[in-house]
Design a protein around this nucleic acid. Sequence first.
DNA 1: CAAACATACAACCAATCAGTTGTATGTCAA
DNA 2: TTGACATACAACTGATTGGTTGTATGTTTG
Lengths: 110, 110
Amino acid sequence: MAEDDEDRADALFHALADRTRRDIMRRVLAGEHSVSALAAGYDMSFAAVQKHVAVLERAGLLTKRRNGREQLASGDVAAVRSVGSMLTELEQVWRGRIARIDELIAEEPS
Amino acid sequence: MAEDDEDRADALFHALADRTRRDIMRRVLAGEHSVSALAAGYDMSFAAVQKHVAVLERAGLLTKRRNGREQLASGDVAAVRSVGSMLTELEQVWRGRIARIDELIAEEPS
DNA sequence: CAAACATACAACCAATCAGTTGTATGTCAA
DNA sequence: TTGACATACAACTGATTGGTTGTATGTTTG
Protein backbone atom coordinates (compact mmCIF):
# COMPACT_ATOMS: atom_id res chain seq x y z
CA MET A 1 0.00 0.00 0.00
CA ALA A 2 1.24 3.49 -0.93
CA GLU A 3 2.38 5.82 1.82
CA ASP A 4 -0.11 8.50 0.82
CA ASP A 5 -2.99 6.07 1.08
CA GLU A 6 -1.93 5.27 4.62
CA ASP A 7 -1.71 8.97 5.45
CA ARG A 8 -5.18 9.40 4.03
CA ALA A 9 -6.51 6.45 6.01
CA ASP A 10 -4.94 7.84 9.18
CA ALA A 11 -6.65 11.19 8.56
CA LEU A 12 -10.04 9.66 7.76
CA PHE A 13 -10.22 7.31 10.73
CA HIS A 14 -8.82 9.96 13.06
CA ALA A 15 -11.41 12.47 11.86
CA LEU A 16 -14.21 10.01 12.59
CA ALA A 17 -12.81 9.01 15.98
CA ASP A 18 -14.57 11.88 17.76
CA ARG A 19 -18.28 11.98 18.55
CA THR A 20 -18.63 15.71 17.89
CA ARG A 21 -17.08 15.30 14.46
CA ARG A 22 -19.28 12.28 13.66
CA ASP A 23 -22.28 14.37 14.66
CA ILE A 24 -21.13 17.22 12.44
CA MET A 25 -20.85 14.70 9.59
CA ARG A 26 -24.46 13.63 10.12
CA ARG A 27 -25.55 17.23 9.88
CA VAL A 28 -23.52 18.18 6.83
CA LEU A 29 -24.46 14.98 5.02
CA ALA A 30 -28.12 15.90 5.58
CA GLY A 31 -27.56 19.34 4.10
CA GLU A 32 -25.39 22.45 3.94
CA HIS A 33 -24.77 24.27 7.21
CA SER A 34 -22.72 27.34 8.04
CA VAL A 35 -19.98 26.93 10.62
CA SER A 36 -21.89 29.08 13.10
CA ALA A 37 -25.10 27.12 12.56
CA LEU A 38 -23.11 23.98 13.38
CA ALA A 39 -21.42 25.62 16.37
CA ALA A 40 -24.80 26.62 17.85
CA GLY A 41 -25.56 22.93 18.36
CA TYR A 42 -22.67 22.14 20.71
CA ASP A 43 -21.73 23.11 24.22
CA MET A 44 -18.27 24.38 23.30
CA SER A 45 -16.73 27.51 21.84
CA PHE A 46 -17.16 28.51 18.23
CA ALA A 47 -13.40 28.13 17.72
CA ALA A 48 -13.52 24.53 18.96
CA VAL A 49 -16.26 23.61 16.48
CA GLN A 50 -14.43 25.44 13.73
CA LYS A 51 -11.37 23.30 14.43
CA HIS A 52 -13.47 20.14 14.22
CA VAL A 53 -14.80 21.29 10.86
CA ALA A 54 -11.21 21.96 9.73
CA VAL A 55 -10.17 18.41 10.72
CA LEU A 56 -13.06 16.97 8.68
CA GLU A 57 -12.21 19.23 5.77
CA ARG A 58 -8.52 18.27 5.77
CA ALA A 59 -9.55 14.60 5.75
CA GLY A 60 -11.74 15.30 2.73
CA LEU A 61 -14.96 14.37 4.53
CA LEU A 62 -16.56 17.75 3.90
CA THR A 63 -16.08 20.72 1.62
CA LYS A 64 -16.82 24.39 2.22
CA ARG A 65 -18.44 26.87 -0.12
CA ARG A 66 -18.50 30.61 0.45
CA ASN A 67 -21.84 32.33 0.49
CA GLY A 68 -21.54 35.96 1.45
CA ARG A 69 -20.07 36.13 4.89
CA GLU A 70 -20.97 32.52 5.61
CA GLN A 71 -19.00 29.39 4.85
CA LEU A 72 -21.38 26.54 4.01
CA ALA A 73 -20.13 23.04 4.84
CA SER A 74 -21.35 20.00 2.96
CA GLY A 75 -20.54 16.34 3.64
CA ASP A 76 -18.81 14.30 0.95
CA VAL A 77 -20.42 10.89 0.75
CA ALA A 78 -17.67 9.59 -1.56
CA ALA A 79 -15.13 10.06 1.23
CA VAL A 80 -17.39 8.15 3.62
CA ARG A 81 -17.59 5.35 1.06
CA SER A 82 -13.82 5.30 0.66
CA VAL A 83 -13.56 4.51 4.37
CA GLY A 84 -16.08 1.73 3.84
CA SER A 85 -13.96 0.26 1.07
CA MET A 86 -10.96 0.14 3.41
CA LEU A 87 -13.05 -1.97 5.76
CA THR A 88 -14.12 -4.15 2.86
CA GLU A 89 -10.46 -4.70 2.05
CA LEU A 90 -9.97 -5.94 5.62
CA GLU A 91 -12.96 -8.21 5.30
CA GLN A 92 -11.48 -9.69 2.11
CA VAL A 93 -8.36 -10.64 4.03
CA TRP A 94 -10.59 -12.46 6.50
CA ARG A 95 -12.42 -14.25 3.66
CA GLY A 96 -9.07 -15.56 2.44
CA ARG A 97 -8.50 -17.06 5.87
CA ILE A 98 -11.87 -18.79 5.83
CA ALA A 99 -11.27 -20.09 2.32
CA ARG A 100 -7.97 -21.60 3.48
CA ILE A 101 -9.67 -23.28 6.42
CA ASP A 102 -12.31 -24.71 4.11
CA GLU A 103 -9.57 -26.12 1.87
CA LEU A 104 -7.98 -27.86 4.84
CA ILE A 105 -11.28 -29.39 5.83
CA ALA A 106 -11.82 -30.63 2.27
CA GLU A 107 -8.31 -32.10 2.02
CA GLU A 108 -8.39 -33.84 5.36
CA PRO A 109 -11.73 -35.53 5.89
CA SER A 110 -12.17 -36.59 9.51
CA MET B 1 -27.63 7.45 19.97
CA ALA B 2 -26.69 5.86 23.31
CA GLU B 3 -23.62 7.11 25.11
CA ASP B 4 -22.00 3.67 25.16
CA ASP B 5 -22.39 3.33 21.41
CA GLU B 6 -20.52 6.60 21.00
CA ASP B 7 -17.78 5.39 23.34
CA ARG B 8 -17.55 2.23 21.29
CA ALA B 9 -17.43 4.17 18.03
CA ASP B 10 -14.68 6.40 19.45
CA ALA B 11 -12.65 3.33 20.40
CA LEU B 12 -13.16 1.58 17.07
CA PHE B 13 -12.26 4.52 14.85
CA HIS B 14 -9.38 5.49 17.09
CA ALA B 15 -8.02 1.93 16.99
CA LEU B 16 -8.10 1.97 13.18
CA ALA B 17 -6.55 5.45 12.94
CA ASP B 18 -2.99 4.09 13.07
CA ARG B 19 -1.25 2.33 10.20
CA THR B 20 0.56 -0.16 12.40
CA ARG B 21 -2.72 -1.20 13.99
CA ARG B 22 -4.45 -1.49 10.62
CA ASP B 23 -1.58 -3.70 9.48
CA ILE B 24 -1.90 -5.85 12.59
CA MET B 25 -5.60 -6.20 11.80
CA ARG B 26 -4.77 -7.47 8.29
CA ARG B 27 -2.50 -10.09 9.81
CA VAL B 28 -4.84 -11.28 12.55
CA LEU B 29 -7.81 -11.37 10.19
CA ALA B 30 -5.75 -13.64 7.92
CA GLY B 31 -5.01 -16.00 10.81
CA GLU B 32 -3.97 -16.35 14.44
CA HIS B 33 -0.61 -14.85 15.40
CA SER B 34 1.19 -14.64 18.73
CA VAL B 35 2.08 -11.19 19.99
CA SER B 36 5.78 -11.86 19.44
CA ALA B 37 5.17 -13.14 15.91
CA LEU B 38 3.38 -9.85 15.23
CA ALA B 39 6.08 -7.80 16.93
CA ALA B 40 8.77 -9.40 14.75
CA GLY B 41 7.23 -7.66 11.74
CA TYR B 42 7.68 -4.07 12.91
CA ASP B 43 10.62 -1.80 13.53
CA MET B 44 9.65 -0.96 17.09
CA SER B 45 9.91 -2.53 20.52
CA PHE B 46 7.91 -5.56 21.57
CA ALA B 47 6.18 -3.44 24.22
CA ALA B 48 5.04 -0.92 21.61
CA VAL B 49 3.45 -3.65 19.48
CA GLN B 50 1.90 -5.18 22.56
CA LYS B 51 0.28 -1.85 23.34
CA HIS B 52 -1.11 -1.64 19.81
CA VAL B 53 -2.57 -5.13 20.23
CA ALA B 54 -4.10 -4.04 23.55
CA VAL B 55 -5.75 -1.02 21.89
CA LEU B 56 -7.27 -3.28 19.23
CA GLU B 57 -8.38 -5.76 21.88
CA ARG B 58 -10.04 -3.06 24.03
CA ALA B 59 -11.91 -1.86 20.95
CA GLY B 60 -13.12 -5.42 20.35
CA LEU B 61 -11.36 -5.72 16.99
CA LEU B 62 -9.37 -8.76 18.06
CA THR B 63 -9.48 -11.41 20.75
CA LYS B 64 -6.67 -13.31 22.41
CA ARG B 65 -6.50 -16.99 23.24
CA ARG B 66 -3.87 -18.54 25.47
CA ASN B 67 -1.85 -21.39 24.05
CA GLY B 68 0.93 -22.45 26.41
CA ARG B 69 3.15 -19.46 26.93
CA GLU B 70 1.87 -17.75 23.83
CA GLN B 71 -1.12 -15.47 23.44
CA LEU B 72 -2.71 -15.98 20.03
CA ALA B 73 -4.50 -12.96 18.57
CA SER B 74 -7.33 -13.34 16.11
CA GLY B 75 -9.21 -10.60 14.24
CA ASP B 76 -12.94 -10.23 14.79
CA VAL B 77 -14.62 -9.60 11.46
CA ALA B 78 -17.94 -8.78 13.16
CA ALA B 79 -16.33 -5.75 14.81
CA VAL B 80 -14.98 -4.63 11.44
CA ARG B 81 -18.49 -4.96 10.03
CA SER B 82 -19.94 -2.94 12.89
CA VAL B 83 -17.70 -0.06 11.85
CA GLY B 84 -18.99 -0.49 8.32
CA SER B 85 -22.55 -0.24 9.54
CA MET B 86 -21.77 3.06 11.24
CA LEU B 87 -20.63 4.37 7.88
CA THR B 88 -23.77 3.00 6.27
CA GLU B 89 -25.79 4.92 8.83
CA LEU B 90 -24.00 8.09 7.72
CA GLU B 91 -24.70 7.27 4.12
CA GLN B 92 -28.41 6.86 4.93
CA VAL B 93 -28.45 10.40 6.29
CA TRP B 94 -27.03 11.56 2.98
CA ARG B 95 -29.66 9.57 1.04
CA GLY B 96 -32.34 11.43 2.97
CA ARG B 97 -30.85 14.70 1.77
CA ILE B 98 -30.90 13.55 -1.86
CA ALA B 99 -34.47 12.33 -1.51
CA ARG B 100 -35.48 15.74 -0.19
CA ILE B 101 -33.77 17.47 -3.11
CA ASP B 102 -35.55 15.16 -5.55
CA GLU B 103 -38.87 16.04 -3.92
CA LEU B 104 -38.19 19.73 -4.40
CA ILE B 105 -37.37 19.20 -8.05
CA ALA B 106 -40.57 17.21 -8.54
CA GLU B 107 -42.69 19.85 -6.77
CA GLU B 108 -41.20 22.79 -8.59
CA PRO B 109 -40.80 21.93 -12.25
CA SER B 110 -38.67 24.51 -14.03
C1' DC C 1 16.19 -26.55 39.07
C1' DA C 2 17.91 -23.12 35.89
C1' DA C 3 17.88 -20.69 31.70
C1' DA C 4 15.45 -18.98 27.88
C1' DC C 5 11.07 -17.47 26.11
C1' DA C 6 6.39 -14.94 25.94
C1' DT C 7 3.84 -11.71 27.99
C1' DA C 8 2.34 -7.90 30.96
C1' DC C 9 2.79 -3.61 32.98
C1' DA C 10 4.75 0.64 35.18
C1' DA C 11 7.27 4.88 34.56
C1' DC C 12 8.88 8.11 31.68
C1' DC C 13 9.15 11.41 27.39
C1' DA C 14 8.11 14.12 23.25
C1' DA C 15 4.40 15.07 20.25
C1' DT C 16 -0.28 15.64 19.26
C1' DC C 17 -5.03 16.73 20.61
C1' DA C 18 -9.16 19.05 22.17
C1' DG C 19 -10.40 22.65 24.32
C1' DT C 20 -9.86 27.71 25.77
C1' DT C 21 -9.35 33.05 25.01
C1' DG C 22 -7.97 36.79 22.31
C1' DT C 23 -7.19 39.15 18.01
C1' DA C 24 -7.59 40.13 13.03
C1' DT C 25 -10.12 40.23 8.76
C1' DG C 26 -13.89 40.36 5.70
C1' DT C 27 -19.04 41.08 4.85
C1' DC C 28 -23.63 42.84 5.54
C1' DA C 29 -27.01 46.27 6.99
C1' DA C 30 -28.65 50.62 9.16
C1' DT D 1 -19.38 54.72 7.88
C1' DT D 2 -20.10 52.42 11.86
C1' DG D 3 -21.44 48.40 14.20
C1' DA D 4 -22.81 43.64 14.32
C1' DC D 5 -21.97 39.20 12.37
C1' DA D 6 -19.11 35.11 10.37
C1' DT D 7 -14.87 33.31 10.04
C1' DA D 8 -9.96 32.43 10.71
C1' DC D 9 -5.97 31.84 13.29
C1' DA D 10 -2.41 32.22 16.99
C1' DA D 11 -1.07 31.14 21.64
C1' DC D 12 -1.79 28.67 25.63
C1' DT D 13 -3.19 24.50 28.72
C1' DG D 14 -4.20 19.86 30.37
C1' DA D 15 -4.96 15.23 28.71
C1' DT D 16 -3.87 11.60 25.63
C1' DT D 17 -0.88 9.20 22.43
C1' DG D 18 2.90 6.43 20.66
C1' DG D 19 7.06 5.35 21.64
C1' DT D 20 10.96 3.95 24.99
C1' DT D 21 13.36 1.07 28.90
C1' DG D 22 13.09 -1.69 32.88
C1' DT D 23 11.01 -5.07 35.84
C1' DA D 24 7.92 -8.88 37.18
C1' DT D 25 5.48 -13.14 36.25
C1' DG D 26 4.31 -17.37 34.20
C1' DT D 27 5.79 -21.34 30.87
C1' DT D 28 8.64 -24.49 28.51
C1' DT D 29 12.77 -27.06 27.97
C1' DG D 30 17.54 -28.82 28.89
